[in-house]
Simulated assay, not measured.
Amino acid sequence: MTSTATESRIVLVTGGNRGIGRAIAEEFVAQGYRVAVTARSGTGPEGTLTVTADVTDAASIDSAFSEVEAKLGPVEIVVANAGITRDMLLMRMSDDDFTDVLDTNLSGAFRVVKRASKGMMKARFGRVILVSSVVGLLGSAGQVNYSASKSGLIGLARSLTRELGSRGITANVVAPGFIETDMTAALATEQQDAYLKQIPANRFAKPSEVAKAITWLASDDAGYISGAVIPVDGGLGMGH
């Protein structure tokens, strides 16, 4: 549980209407934070404010933040979770397949963090949490675009730490492995078994396990942790 000092803090989770982003938003709500989520369509979980935003469009992000600021107050914790995949072997991957994934997953995080940092610097407090992936460190055949985008978040967080650390702002990365989602449930049994053999924990993570790592990084208990990469992968990416 968070302390009473953190319970009223304002959180924005991008892509918080489904999957891991939704689980993150639900956990923040359960711990008493005031939570907004961005979505291109759909709505966030009960107890959240949903704002429409496209992370590839700076004006859209600015409008979303302005709405959150007007209805809840300045964003103190931002979780950059919105992401897409365009999996394809290198020789078949188009320039657009590569740049579209980078523009959403990496440049999108940059745009969101840049807008959030204004209020954080003024308040001399902030938590920036970037949702990466084990493949950002481990690599993955057919995912050079996705892996590159997720790896880039680490450089972003570490540079932010050096730039903003003296202002009471931390920037960290969470790197999930295989998560129990609709996507993994749809995999053939043999494919699931092949993935499980690579994971020392011999199971996929629950979305809530990723969410709890993120809410901990947002708490006062993690105030001296910055520039870190926290794996939530059952040991899959060890040594990377």
Rank of each mutant, 00 (worst) to 15 (best):
Q191R: 15
T104N: 04
A53W: 10
A30S: 15
V68S: 01
V68W: 05
V68D: 08
D57W: 01
D100L: 09
F178G: 07
V68P: 11
A5T: 14
D221L: 08
A123L: 12
A116S: 08
S208P: 00
D97P: 12
I77Q: 01
A228C: 08
R127Y: 00
R203L: 01
K118C: 00
R162E: 14
V232E: 06
L164H: 12
A82K: 05
V128S: 02
G19M: 04
G47L: 02
G108C: 09
Y195I: 15
W216N: 03
T14S: 15
V101A: 08
A201V: 05
S3H: 11
R40F: 05
A175P: 02
S219D: 08
A141P: 03
A188G: 14
G235I: 04
T99E: 14
L160R: 02
V78H: 03
I225K: 02
R127E: 00
A70S: 14
V13P: 11
I179L: 01
T181K: 00
W216A: 02
G235S: 06
F125Y: 15
L102F: 10
I214C: 01
G136F: 05
A23M: 05
S226V: 08
D103I: 10
E27L: 06
L217G: 03
A70K: 15
G155C: 07
S159A: 15
D95L: 13
A39D: 03
T181M: 03
G42Q: 11
I61S: 02
V29G: 04
S133P: 11
A30G: 08
F28N: 12
Y224I: 14
A70Y: 03
D233K: 09
M121Y: 00
G83F: 10
A218F: 06
S166W: 10
S63N: 12
T38A: 06
R86M: 13
G108T: 10
Q198E: 14
I10A: 02
K206G: 00
T43Y: 00
G73T: 07
K118M: 08
N145Y: 08
A53K: 06
N172E: 06
L72R: 03
R162F: 05
A213K: 11
W216M: 11
A109S: 15
T56C: 04
A211P: 08
Q143R: 14
L156I: 12
A186F: 00
S226H: 07
A25M: 01
L130A: 04
L90M: 14
L49K: 07
T56F: 04
F125Q: 03
T50R: 07
L89C: 01
I179E: 05
K150Q: 11
V232Y: 13
V51N: 04
G83P: 02
T6E: 15
H240G: 10
V51T: 11
F204Y: 06
R162N: 13
S107K: 15
V37M: 03
S94P: 07
V134H: 01
D97H: 13
V51G: 05
N145W: 05
D57N: 14
A186W: 02
I154T: 12
A201S: 13
V29H: 05
D96F: 09
G19L: 07
D220K: 09
G152C: 07
P231E: 10
T4Q: 14
A213M: 10
D87K: 01
S66H: 09
V29Q: 10
E180F: 01
A59K: 14
T4P: 12
D96C: 01
